[in-house]
Design a binder for these strands. Structure first.
Lengths: 200, 200
DNA sequence: CCTACCGATCGGTAGG
DNA sequence: CCTACCGATCGGTAGG
């Protein structure tokens, strides 16, 4: 019998990814250093990096983990509602709640990652870009469905509106993270989003 | 006679600050390492850091230099116009032009710095926060003046509008830097800003 | 999963 | 403004 089962190894791997995701949300994906994770988790550096092979692979794993949380928390709740205005507003509210929640110390993972990696080519950059583009498309599609259903102003351009909603979230993020104003961020964000959608 | 005059030393200092500002706009303020600047400028590390004493002081100098450029390029042009709607729109257009200009490889310095330092306490964080807050106040004041003059909708809340304009610029920055779409960013940005101001 | 190690780079200093 | 150096940390590897 091996000293560690496959299941144990997987659990260790998940604890590393979880910690990497949390560290990255505060200090950025470059703040995820192998030595720091090892110290935080009481492991050796070799034990940490052995699960991934390279720091880049570790960053990609943290990115994927953050993406799963985002999808579940922001996109998920609206799926209980039929496509249309109600679902779009549910997504917006869940999104603002996500970036203003008290237990999310570092703010929006993808927004921070976007600014951190926008000038650095490589697989992490590409994956961030892909994730954000995918989300913008989902948003535009949901907005388009609501317009089609006659539940949002027909003059609304879904892609422009998706762009503007994402911009608002970046503003909310700054309000929370830089200025420490969670309530102000939430209120300004919700107000701005409703104005974007013409749904005040 | 000293080998280097005071004027020469000042010129050297300015070349260091200029390079630091450019490096930071691409790779962030933490990308400004003493060794890298020394290599870029053909100097020794001691020669670089001697002008500032610490990396933090160098970062603050780069921040101040970026602030001067921002004020000149974004706030400056509008000052030729009387306070009011025209000046607000001039500021908005200059701002979008600033973050979408081809010769600004790293995008908006302050937006990137805001995300980079929002979780790191210290003098650099404080200075970024102060600079952004000041700009938000200037924006709100200009919008307020235009509302007072009856040139913008009286229902407009100047502080909310300033928040939203800043958010739009972050979106433009992402469009340019992450997606490489300068023209799309400019068009979406100008359109969004006019909608924020109710001045389509 | 560990110990022990590699070369490179970090911010910064001593001394000139 | 330089050379020469400091201790710390970086990502990563060898060998077990």
């Amino acid at each position: 019998m091996p000293r560690r089962s496959v299941a144990d190894a997987l659990k260790t791997r998940e604890s590393i990814v979880g910690r990497a995701r949390d560290v990255a949300s505060v200090d950025g994906l470059e703040g995820v250093t192998i030595g720091r994770l090892a110290g935080d988790l009481g492991m050796s550096k070799a034990g940490v990096i052995g699960h991934f092979g390279s720091k880049t692979e570790l960053q990609l794993a943290a990115l994927a983990a953050a993406g799963e949380i985002f999808t579940r928390e922001v996109f998920g709740p609206g799926q209980a509602l039929p496509a249309g205005r109600g679902r779009v507003l549910a997504i917006c509210d869940a999104w603002v709640a996500h970036v203003t929640r008290p237990a999310f110390p570092g703010g929006c993972f993808f927004t921070a990652a976007s600014f951190e990696f926008d000038g650095r080519p490589g697989p992490v950059h590409d994956e961030i870009r892909r994730g954000i583009r995918r989300w913008r498309r989902v948003l535009a599609r949901e907005i388009g469905a609501a317009v089609e259903a006659g539940e949002l102003d027909r003059a609304l351009d879904p892609e422009q509106a998706a762009f503007e909603l994402y911009a608002v979230v970046m503003g909310v993020n700054q309000e929370v993270q830089l200025f420490g104003d969670r309530r102000g961020g939430r209120e300004r964000g919700r107000r701005a989003m409703r104005r974007v959608l013409g749904a005040a």
